[in-house]
């Protein structure tokens, strides 16, 4: 504290000694990205029009989006399996991406005009942290790059106002190249690196693992995609796996969930193969508290759960 400034006047000039508050992860979300849920919401950014559908998921998303409104945070960091990279993990490295995203699988449902702001400083810090940890990684700085629809769907459903910057991290396909076990190891290491960068950044961050649970699709589509009389899980074994994992999430057994994930991926083609859940749980220190479950529903046969891990016991609730 200085008591005498250059003008000779008495003043109180408090400094913070250059130490910023530690950043933290304020929420982790399992946020599946079937484009159907955005299609069903009919936001103005999406070209196709629907008559609704998939309410169990959409209403769950709406509840979680309301919770996020009451949480103070600076940025959403999402790991998506629809930006697939074989050379390590890549990070978005430009401040803004404006484009139209057309789903390559469901172009009839999702043609979404977006204007995405990226927290480049945090993205660079996370990439640097990953590199320092020996993880192959790089920044993506091509201005014509199209942000994947997984990022867009999850982020839109969690924050339809798009009033927070995001960072997208690509999914390294180590499951394909090596094994589910290697994926678990590598995604865990990435989670630790990201967590370290967030702490040092001073940011309050929401993490998003953008994927479903079981992931076997029907290969045909109803004439009216939102015809809910046609929607059901692909087969019962997938449902049983999904329910088992959700039960373990409720019980706060995330270390065990990550441990059996290779088995689940093998049995259900689970989209967690992209590393999202493992990455997020590792970054959050393998939560041993109950997850908040917001919804579960099948979309074109796949099993989709919306769940959140709230590190703050005072705001953690039982939702469903």
């Amino acid at each position: 504290m200085n008591t005498l400034n250059l003008a000779g006047r008495f003043s109180l000039d408090f400094s913070t000694s250059g130490v910023m508050a530690r950043g933290e992860i304020v929420l982790g979300c399992l946020a599946p990205h079937p484009p159907h849920v955005v299609y069903a919401e009919n936001p103005e950014q999406n070209e196709p029009f629907s008559e609704g559908g998939w309410e169990a998921l959409r209403w769950g998303y709406n509840m979680l989006a309301r919770k996020l409104k009451d949480i103070e945070y600076d940025c959403i960091v999402v790991l998506t399996p629809h930006w697939q990279t074989y050379i390590g993990n890549h990070f978005l490295g430009l401040e803004r991406f404006q484009n139209i995203s057309v789903d390559p699988i469901f172009p009839n449902l999702f043609r979404f005009h977006h204007d995405i702001e990226v927290d480049v400083e945090l993205s660079e810090a996370m990439q640097k942290s990953a590199e320092d940890a020996g993880i192959v990684s790089m920044m993506m700085r091509n201005p014509n790059f199209r942000v994947d629809y997984g990022t867009i769907v999850s982020c839109h459903m969690l924050n339809p106002e798009w009033d927070k910057p995001i960072v997208t991290i690509s999914s390294n396909r180590s499951t394909h190249y090596y094994s589910d076990e290697v994926m678990n190891e590598q995604a865990s290491a990435l989670g630790l690196a990201v967590s370290k960068a967030i702490e040092e950044s001073g940011r309050k961050v929401v993490l998003v693992a953008s994927h479903s649970l079981s992931h076997r699709h029907f290969v045909t589509e109803a004439p009216l995609p939102e015809d809910m009389s046609r929607e059901h899980i692909y087969n019962h074994s997938q449902y049983v796996w999904d329910m088992k994992v959700i039960e373990m999430m409720r019980e706060g057994k995330m270390e065990e969930v990550i441990g059996i994930l290779p088995e689940m991926i093998e049995q259900t083609m689970a989209e967690a193969e992209g590393g999202g859940l493992t990455w997020m749980m590792s970054a959050m220190g393998m939560p041993d508290y109950p997850a908040e479950i917001y919804g579960y529903q099948s979309v074109i046969g796949t099993g989709n759960a919306i769940a959140a891990w709230d590190p703050n016991p005072s705001s953690r609730t039982i939702v469903l």
Binding site: Y86, I87, M140, N142, N144, F145, R146, S170
Partner: peptide
């Protein structure tokens, strides 16, 4: 359109 590869974006558009 203008396409950019997921892995090799650094090579150009």
């Amino acid at each position: 359109f203008t396409h950019v590869d997921d892995d090799f974006h650094f090579l150009g558009s």
